[in-house]
């Protein structure tokens, strides 16, 4: 029964969601079979497609973990997208303005660190508003998403715009602040192996340390946790700092490892897809790995689907939404809130 629940529900959710999306496409007059063929080709068709899938899985994995830990603590961090953007913004500011000429061993860690701290503070702001002013983190993180995305838009039209001022984008990051590519690959950056290690670290933290136990206890029952002497306010702040930091790191890795610049629409909604990733993984850090790979493949394949079969890439969001609905509608036990 446990095996069925652990694997059957996620696999079923993915299958049903894909089928529903295909039917909707057919109803709108698009060719579903051709779309699926293009999608699969763009996701795993050749080595470049595979590399693309891996690279796109990276932010999904990081923010998927961010969502999983916060949901486990009963904190609804919907703000992964905004935390990613402020992380990318901070990393870019450090790498193009403040420490661009620093030696290699300094600029890169500073940029990644700045992204992480910025994301953590953005999440922390929601925590402070909740703990001191009673503002639901659901609303504050959603609003902070809009503010962060527009903040980046302002930055690349204003203070962080490239020196030649042609396009609304930042200067290219200094080579010393870039994550190098792994030898023999075209897109895989050196941050990727580290990213794929994180789920195991997070699993250790959640299930093998007292801090992880406290965090889960608050999620399972805030009243019981309080009775056991755990401060729910402190856990709220901690988990949003951690969660925001992971998402901020994802943003920093995007600019340092993938794009090399900051611009608007840096993320195709990774922060929202990550919610589907975390729920498909049933909020388990290890489960986030296959879930992130799956949605990374979808993200990578959707571009090819649009080019080859002329099916809008945003259709992938429908699959994501349906996966979320089917994951929570039939599987997750409701935790006390």
């Amino acid at each position: 029964m446990n095996v069925v629940r652990a694997w059957g529900v996620p696999v079923g959710a993915v299958l049903v969601a894909s089928a529903v999306a295909a039917i909707l496409l057919a109803l709108l007059g698009a060719p579903p079979l051709e779309a699926v063929r293009a999608l699969v080709g763009g996701a795993v068709g050749d080595s470049l497609a595979l590399e693309n899938t891996l690279v796109r899985s990276s932010p999904l994995l990081l923010i998927g973990l961010a969502v999983a830990v916060s949901f486990r603590c009963g904190i609804w961090n919907i703000g992964g997208e905004g935390q990613l953007y402020v992380g990318a913004l901070a990393a870019t500011a450090i790498a193009t303005r403040a420490f661009g000429s620093a030696p290699p061993g300094v600029a890169l860690p500073l940029a990644l660190g700045a992204g992480m701290v910025a994301g953590a503070l953005w999440g922390g702001l929601a925590a402070v508003l909740r703990v001191t002013r009673g503002v639901s983190e659901v609303l504050s993180t959603i609003l902070l998403n809009f503010i962060a995305v527009l903040g980046v838009a302002y930055a690349v039209h204003g203070p962080l715009q490239e020196v030649v001022a042609t396009y609304p984008q930042s200067d290219a990051l200094a080579a010393t602040a870039r994550l190098p590519l792994l030898p023999g690959t075209l897109r895989i950056h050196a941050g990727l192996p580290f990213v794929f290690l994180l789920p195991f670290l997070l699993w250790l933290m959640l299930f093998r340390t007292a801090a992880g136990l406290r965090l889960r206890a608050v999620g399972l029952s805030p009243e019981a946790a309080r009775y056991a002497g755990i401060s729910t306010s402190r856990e709220t702040v901690r988990v949003l700092l951690l969660s925001g930091g992971l998402a901020g790191l994802a943003g920093a890795i995007e600019v340092c490892g993938v794009t090399g610049r900051l611009f608007e629409n840096l993320s195709p909604g990774y922060g929202f897809t990550a919610i589907a990733v975390a729920l498909l993984a049933r909020l388990h850090p290890i489960g986030v790995v296959p879930a992130a790979l799956f949605f990374g493949a979808l993200a990578s394949g959707s571009g090819a689907m649009q080019r080859v079969a002329h099916v809008p890439s945003v259709t992938v969001q429908v699959v994501e939404a349906l996966v979320i609905l089917f994951s929570v509608g039939f599987a997750l036990p409701r935790r006390g809130s």
Binding site: L28, I275, V311, Q317
Partner: peptide, 27 residues
Amino acid sequence: QRADPIVTGTAVNLLALGGTGSAYRLL
């Protein structure tokens, strides 16, 4: 189904965004 309202609401938003986007681009 007693699914969590926050998560369900988020999915509904995503569904609307993807659904209207796809339909708009196709139609």
